[in-house]
């Protein structure tokens, strides 16, 4: 997979976020503050623009694409999702190094590192009803295939419904957070759905 593959992944994610922004905001209004869709849409629009305006002098590698996208999210989105998604992409990008092409195994290892960094930054673990509940199973299922990772992320997001939130704004709801899907897990599932989609186009 080359830099172009990762650009396609990110622009596909931007389209998916655009399409699903209303649903994400709806989920967030149940247990948060009703802005997750709007914020991610703003962030991924900025990512699309940053990728298009890329400095031709910069190396065109998968690592550089993800790092630029991550930095853009950190400096454009705000809220918790900016630093968390920004860190996921930036740390994954850094782990990929400056290779012009990366293998499936290298991407999986890099994503593992990116997801771990999200857990450290957010001081969260599996089962806290956060984006990690989609990301952990997705990365684990990458060993099998991209579609399996997409499915695992979607199931992980759905599995947050009965959980009680322990991190982020939803944690203030305590028991009342039970019965709602975590919006961050839902958007993380989109990220892996589009990865499966873009990988499927390639093969």
């Amino acid at each position: 997979m080359d830099a172009e593959f990762f650009r396609r992944w990110l622009t596909a994610t931007a389209r998916a976020v655009e399409r699903e922004a209303g649903r994400l905001t709806e989920l967030d209004s149940a247990i948060g503050d009703a802005d997750h869709g709007a914020n991610l849409r703003r962030g991924f629009q900025a990512v699309t623009e940053a990728l298009a305006a890329r400095d031709p002098q910069e190396p065109d590698t998968p690592g550089a694409v993800l790092t630029l996208a991550g930095r853009t999210l950190v400096s454009k989105v705000g809220g918790a999702s900016g630093p968390l998604y920004g860190t996921l992409l930036r740390r994954t990008g850094k782990a990929l190094g400056d290779a012009p092409e990366v293998s499936d195994a290298e991407l999986r290892a890099a994503l593992e590192e990116g997801v771990r960094a999200v857990g450290v930054l957010g001081k969260s673990e599996a089962g806290d009803k956060t984006m990690l509940d989609a990301l952990f199973p997705a990365v684990a299922a990458l060993a099998e295939s991209y579609p399996a990772a997409g499915d695992a992320a979607a199931r992980g997001a759905e599995a947050t419904i009965p959980l009680r939130a322990r991190r982020g704004r939803a944690s203030y709801l305590g028991e009342r957070s039970v019965g709602h899907e975590d919006p961050g897990a839902a958007s993380s599932a989109l990220l892996f759905a589009t990865l499966a989609e873009v990988a499927g186009d390639v093969r």
Binding site: N39, S75, K76, G78, G79, A80
Partner: peptide, 11 residues
């Protein structure tokens, strides 16, 4: 000032 109900960014 950040966006409505959204924290500002580090920059």
């Amino acid at each position: 000032p950040g966006e409505v109900f959204t924290s500002p960014v580090p920059d």
